[in-house]
């Protein structure tokens, strides 16, 4: 079990407080004070589960800009492409599928980066990440793929990840 560190508490507090303000959207002094107290308590108890690595990475403007470009730009384009593809398969009778589970190598070291990439892969229709393993220093994902075009390994990885991995490495490294 990890110890509660001060930077982690600060970051968790900021995130919780931002959520409080977004959900209440009222700026009277009473609401703000109550939110600060509740966020502080939540941060003290949950910071050690929430933050495992550097606590302030999102507060670097460049990383934040990369994160915004990734989630609102690059990722949305991939999402729309995959959705149109999946919708075509569904409307043409679900016969045109070729499912299988492939194993792909991934070159992201950070835990958060790996989690974000796995979530991004799962969120695009047509691929679901099932398991993350590490063998001899190299991280592998097991991905269920609705239309297996290439056998396991680097080529399948390039086809599934596309530009996602490159951008996530910029955000987290």
């Amino acid at each position: 079990m990890q110890k509660t560190r001060f930077p982690a508490v600060v970051t968790t507090f900021i995130v919780s407080y931002a959520f409080w303000i977004l959900l209440t959207w009222s700026f009277s002094a009473q609401e703000l004070a109550a939110g600060a107290v509740v966020s502080l308590v939540v941060a003290l108890f949950s910071a050690r589960f929430f933050i495992h690595e550097r606590a302030f990475w999102l507060f670097s403007p460049l990383k934040f800009a990369y994160a915004v470009i990734f989630w609102l730009g690059v990722f949305m384009v991939e999402l729309v492409k995959a959705n149109v593809d999946m919708a075509k398969r569904c409307f043409t009778g679900c016969k045109n599928i070729n499912p299988g589970i492939v194993k792909i190598p991934v070159d992201i070291k950070s835990d958060y980066g790996q989690a974000a990439l796995a979530n991004a892969i799962t969120l695009t229709p047509g691929t679901i990440t099932m398991e993350i393993t590490e063998e001899a220093g190299q991280t592998y994902y097991y991905v269920h793929w609705i239309d297996v075009a290439k056998p396991s390994g680097k080529e399948a990885g390039d086809a599934i990840k596309g530009t996602l991995e490159k951008w996530l490495r910029r955000v987290w490294e």
Binding site: C90, I97, P99, P125
Partner: peptide, 21 residues
């Protein structure tokens, strides 16, 4: 599209793929 996929896909994993839509 996702609903049609959930009803017509042949197995659990393919149905989950369709539901992501």
């Amino acid at each position: 599209a996702g609903t049609i996929g959930v009803i017509k896909m042949p197995d659990v994993f393919s149905r989950m793929q369709a539901s992501t839509c």
